[in-house]
Design a protein around this nucleic acid. Structure first.
Lengths: 89, 89
DNA sequence: CGGCATTAGGGTAATTTGGGGA
DNA sequence: AGTGTCCAAATTACCCTAATGC
């Protein structure tokens, strides 16, 4: 498939970002990252979205000290794996 | 709308949710997801119901358009007549 | 008939959740 | 504003053996 709809657990995402799983949960609660809830209440994150977030901002790094850049200027619009909604006939 | 013609096996549903097949069985045992039992005792799940659970929340992704639009930060969790999604503890 | 992969069931450890406070 | 740590609880993951499905 195109985007690889693999789902990651909070622990996986936390390890990728080097933060605590709790922080990842906060991102999901704040709507900063898409999250899928299991019937049990646990969250799952898209591997493609996490990847876009990881690389969307790591390359453009200014060492000068300019702290005025938008935190979301990346092209993280991977939208494609959506169900297109047209699948229901 | 059709009531889901295709039936999925626990392994399929587990792969979709990135969980263990045993967990899917637990959902069915808890009544969180509809399940059809085979004469032998194995369970089968409706593809339409599983898809609705996966991410049927108003995440209607747009096929195309601007790639600079912030993500939909709306927290519209399962607002439908969800299958007893009262997983809040 | 035999065979293999998957599933069911019980039990225990690990992870995740939610809120509060630093 | 954002993150790390504390608590208690729930949910999930992995262990096993036997039965089912194809």
């Amino acid at each position: 498939m195109d985007t690889g709809d693999r789902l990651l657990t909070p622990g996986e995402v936390a390890a990728l970002f080097r933060v605590d799983p709790k922080t990842v949960t906060r991102w999901a609660a704040a709507g900063r990252i898409g999250s899928i809830r299991t019937p049990g209440g646990h969250r799952r994150f898209r591997e493609s979205e996490v990847r876009a977030l990881l690389e969307g901002e790591g390359v453009l790094d200014d060492l000068d000290g300019d702290a005025n850049r938008p935190r979301n200027a990346g092209p993280p619009q991977n939208g494609s794996h959506g169900p297109t909604n047209a699948g229901l006939h």
